[in-house]
Amino acid sequence: MLAGIKNLFLRQFENKVAVDHINFSIQEGEFVGFIGPNGAGKTTTIKMLSGIIHPTEGAISVMGYIPHRLEHGFKKNFSITMGQKNQLWWDLPAIDSFQLIKEIYEITEPDYTRTLQELTELLEVQSILNTPLRNLSLGERMKFELIGAFLHGPKVLFLDEPTIGLDVSSRRRIRDFLKYINVEKKVTVILTSHYLEDIEELCNRIIAISHGKIIYDGSLSDITTGELPINDIFESLFNK
């Protein structure tokens, strides 16, 4: 039981209910996509899963930890990236930011070197490791963000809009990368995205959220009949 959420209920500042009695559990190795319109509660759910926000009621368990206790043991085993918000130093090359990450997560030297080499080869970014981040394109920066997120070998990855604003080929590269770490490294990935190709290609399960409630939880193939394009299926889902 990797992540179980029971009856989550979160009130926000103006008493708007962000997430309303959500209930699901995710097994290790799954690749789950959260979809839904803006303001549906996807990001709020991810923030609760990563311990950033406390739920008003209910119980959450991720890898056996209660996320909002924010124990170091928990934090060492997951990663989160949020859209275009940078974690890495803007003015320095990625390699320097990675040094800091190495120290923060207490990654051993051999693990660090090995993982770094593997990931930079995978995303083909070795040549720009020493270029300051501000001189890189959005796609290149995002690739480094993902490498940075994975350097310490987390078991769970939360990705909030990882491909937003990127061009088609960058998105493809990143999707291949995510597929690789999910399948080969058995990393559980929870993803939100507005791009349907991301959901289609990567996720074996989708959870659709609307107005804070789950309106569908299951595999993608179960709702695609092969006749209607995915867009229409999702549209009808959310218009109910």
Partner: peptide, 15 residues
């Protein structure tokens, strides 16, 4: 305001 704080909270270091 920007939400960058979230990254600080989720690192295994005293935030």
């Amino acid at each position: 305001r920007s939400g960058a704080l979230d990254y600080y909270i989720t690192k295994p270091v005293n935030s």
